[in-house]
């Protein structure tokens, strides 16, 4: 645990308390606002019609990679270290699993992103139909993944345990008990990674990324052919 004597300045409060809450507010309200006011714009913004071959080698690794990455982050950050230990997972074993799994998923994502970035700029049809938002999202994702991979690679020995610092800080934010002191001694590359993620979350509701929230779940149990009855005031 962190010592109580850690010095936290105004910058720490800005970055690790004010900013995360600002971002979360934008994230939640932005989604609601867009859904309510402009549902027509809510789409995965697929460009498969315009280009298909490169998309396969970009979109598939990227999406499967990022899903694994998110799963890993959930296990490492949301589930407390105590639970890992309760399962008999020693620090050493946890670290090996986290690093190998993380690097695999991270590089899979990066590979997909590189292909997607190349595709977005090299295929004229795709580039001509790209919005500023599409480019911003792509660049931010690349930076986030690069920072994340660098952080992992810089900590191969495992001397820094984010489960004692970043994880409780994040859970504190989500449970409305923010504690910036937890972030005080986190290596800069991890901080950069988190900062970039916050930027991404801030633009999220105003870009194509809204499609993440629309992943079809009802479909799983839905009857196949749908009939829709008109319902108006008299129904």
């Amino acid at each position: 645990m962190q010592e109580a004597t850690v010095q936290v300045g105004i910058t720490d409060y800005l970055f690790w308390v004010a900013l995360p809450y600002t971002v979360l507010t934008i994230f939640v309200l932005g989604h609601i606002y867009r859904y309510a006011t402009d549902p027509m714009s809510w789409t995965s913004k697929s460009s498969e019609l315009l280009e298909k071959k490169l998309l396969r080698f970009g979109s598939m690794p990227f999406h499967y990679g990022i899903i694994l990455v998110l799963l890993g982050h959930f296990i490492g950050l949301i589930i407390p270290k105590a639970v890992h230990e309760a399962f008999g997972l020693s620090d050493h074993v946890y670290h090996i699993i986290a690093v190998t799994g993380g690097l695999f998923a991270g590089f899979l994502t990066l590979l997909g992103l590189i292909v997607l970035t190349y595709r977005r700029f090299a295929v004229k049809r795709v580039l001509a139909n790209s919005s500023a938002g599409d480019i911003v999202v792509l660049v931010l994702l690349l930076l986030v993944v690069l920072a994340g991979l660098t952080a992992t690679l810089s900590n191969l020995g495992g001397s820094f345990d984010y489960r004692d610092t970043i994880a409780p800080w994040l859970r504190g934010i989500l449970t409305l008990r923010p504690d910036p002191t937890l972030m005080a001694n986190v290596p800069i590359i991890f901080k950069l990674h988190i900062f970039l993620v916050m930027l991404l979350l801030a633009v999220w509701p105003f870009t194509r990324l809204v499609h993440v929230l629309s992943f079809p779940i009802v479909f799983l149990r839905r009857s196949r052919v749908i009939f829709r009855r008109r319902c108006g005031d008299m129904a």
Partner: peptide, 30 residues
Amino acid sequence: CVAACPSGAMYKRDEDGIVLVDQDMCRGWR
């Protein structure tokens, strides 16, 4: 097409069977 739509945006109108895409619900899953 209706059966394949993951979003449930496509439907047959109950009164006349016309097949439509709800543009607000379509998420472009293709």
